[in-house]
Design a protein around this nucleic acid. Structure first.
Lengths: 200, 200
DNA sequence: TCGTTGCGAAACTCAATCGTATCGAAATTA
DNA sequence: TAATTTCGATACGATTGAGTTTCGCAACGA
């Protein structure tokens, strides 16, 4: 039984193509980013877009749902490092990361899934929320809590209200603002408007 | 439609059932409110839910899209009357109408369609936006503009930024807040937080 | 070289849904 | 009553996509 050491024994035969696997995931995310709902996704469309056979997909995932779960799981939140100098700066950093993501394919995936599939595929959403949404949410929450502790934000501020105003405003611009890329100074303007309020 | 003898002559034969027509529209809205996307809607499901035959649907609408357009067209925005005493009061009135709608079937329709189908069915969205979204948007916009004119809001306030913060915060709570009905004082808290800002 | 496994392509079965057609019964006008 | 039209129900062929199978070839270990 002389087996290749180093952990797992390599099975005989042609190894699975890492490239095909990547292409499948990428094709899936592409289609989702283009606005295709999870229910409308077809394995055949994914296979065609990825340039692989359906067999290659079913050898790895037993169903469409499983594939989508894995594809979305690759969308880790790439949280920007926070300077920590001021709450205002950190909020701008976080919201600007949202702005940039909204212009990219992966970001549009996150947005589309988060907005549309919430109640339609609860089982699927679980991992997605945990992996892609929660970290961002928590980062924002922590900055706000730090601001309250340091006195930079009102002591009586409801944390979730702060999160709602800040990320809600970004969301609104993404979804219903003028078409095209979000303006570069949007994050700064949102933060300043939210911090100082709408009254003189 | 039963037509009075005034004007057009009533054609011979059994008249179309107004009740069936209503039931079809209601069933369509029900399914959309439950989170079914327009693409996933099936005529057969609508017919079954409405208790009518498919024939009865196809006699009135030539396609699923046509039916959905008509169903959504019944969702006029029921704008609340504004006291006009203060901008704060009017904003609370508007946002509280949003809160109440979010708990009702028709409101959930509007929300689901507005969030999910935006780019998937542009043709369908056109009438829907004009009929259901634009009036609400304009009402909010007018209140904010009045507030700027009267000095109740900052003179340098970007109107769309105000709209983004206010309706974005409501949207956030609806979509990602704790599950269950929105708290009754949510509109008031959103408005106050937005007006006075997050800093002390 | 040989055995094993993955590859893409294609054909297949099965189920859902589309849009149409047909049925007998019901509702209405003439 | 007779003619007409709609009703709900059901059946139909066409299409789509899921998931499976088969095939000939490619890539790997032994």
């Amino acid at each position: 039984m002389t087996i290749q050491e180093s952990g797992a024994a390599r099975p005989a035969g042609r190894p699975r193509s890492e490239k095909a696997e990547k292409a499948i995931i990428e094709a899936t995310l592409d289609l989702i980013a283009e606005g295709m709902g999870v229910s409308e996704l077809s394995i055949e469309a994914i296979a065609s877009r990825a340039g692989v056979g359906k067999t290659t997909i079913y050898r790895r995932w037993s169903s469409k749902e499983d594939l989508v779960v894995d594809a979305l799981a690759t969308l880790k939140a790439p949280l920007p490092p926070l300077a920590g100098t001021s709450v205002r700066d950190d909020l701008i950093t976080l919201l600007d990361a949202m702005r940039i993501e909204a212009g990219q394919r992966r970001g549009r995936c996150v947005m589309n899934v988060a907005m549309s599939e919430a109640d339609r595929h609860p089982r699927l959403m679980e991992r997605f929320v945990k992996r892609a949404l929660e970290p961002r949410r928590r980062a924002l929450q922590e900055v706000i809590e730090r601001g309250i502790a340091s006195g930079e934000l009102r002591a009586d501020l409801d944390v979730s209200m702060g999160m709602a105003i800040l990320s809600g405003a970004m969301m609104w611009h993404t979804k219903w603002g003028p078409p095209g890329d979000l303006p570069e100074d949007l994050a700064e303007r949102v933060v300043d408007a939210a911090l100082t309020g709408l009254v003189p």
